[in-house]
Amino acid sequence: MFTRKKFNSFCRKPARSKKPVCLPYRKTGSGKSSLLKVLYGDIKITQGEGSVAGYNLVKLKNKDVPFLRRKLGIVFQDFQLLGDRTVKDNLMFVLHATGWEEKGKMNDRINDVLNKVGLSTKGFKMPHELSGGEQQRLAIARALLNDPELILADEPSGNLDPETSNEIMNLFFELSKTSCSVIMATHNYSLIERYPSRIVKIDLGKVTEAN
């Protein structure tokens, strides 16, 4: 595992700079996903300290985890969409779950984020009817619903072809300039070269600044 102290100093920075951060890694099992899991409250910190979006990760209680996640947007390699309902209902679920009540505002918000990711015409489709790139965009739209302070992306382009990967990366880059910080984990060096940003390396469980 990465050392806690280095990780902590690292995870305070991205909230300040709105530049995207890439976490490349060489081997599987280096701790990249674990790092992201710590950030969204799935793994507890046992020593050291850390905080995300105003939540102290050490003192984080189980009942606080959902509220921490509302401040983050999380995007996964395998999308994690709700496969039993339409695109619109996927987004509607999140809004319901996070305490939205007014129907009109909810619909506006959904149209808003779908526009942002270029899916405004696909609201009625089921997730499995979308292409991989579209599913990932839906996941990003979902992450954007509650105006997150930080987007965590765990290999968002891992399941996509190079061209679609570029689209997704452009989208993230755009977001990082306009609305929120983005932390993305990837092992795709060519992507990193094409989209210059602050890079942090995780190797053998250690976090090091690469540039």
């Binding site: 969204y40 996640r69 999380i74």
Partner: peptide, 17 residues
Amino acid sequence: RLLIKSMKLVGATRNFI
């Protein structure tokens, strides 16, 4: 179970799920 997991990840409380 995967559905429940996804619901957890988007910030839904246990009661809501």
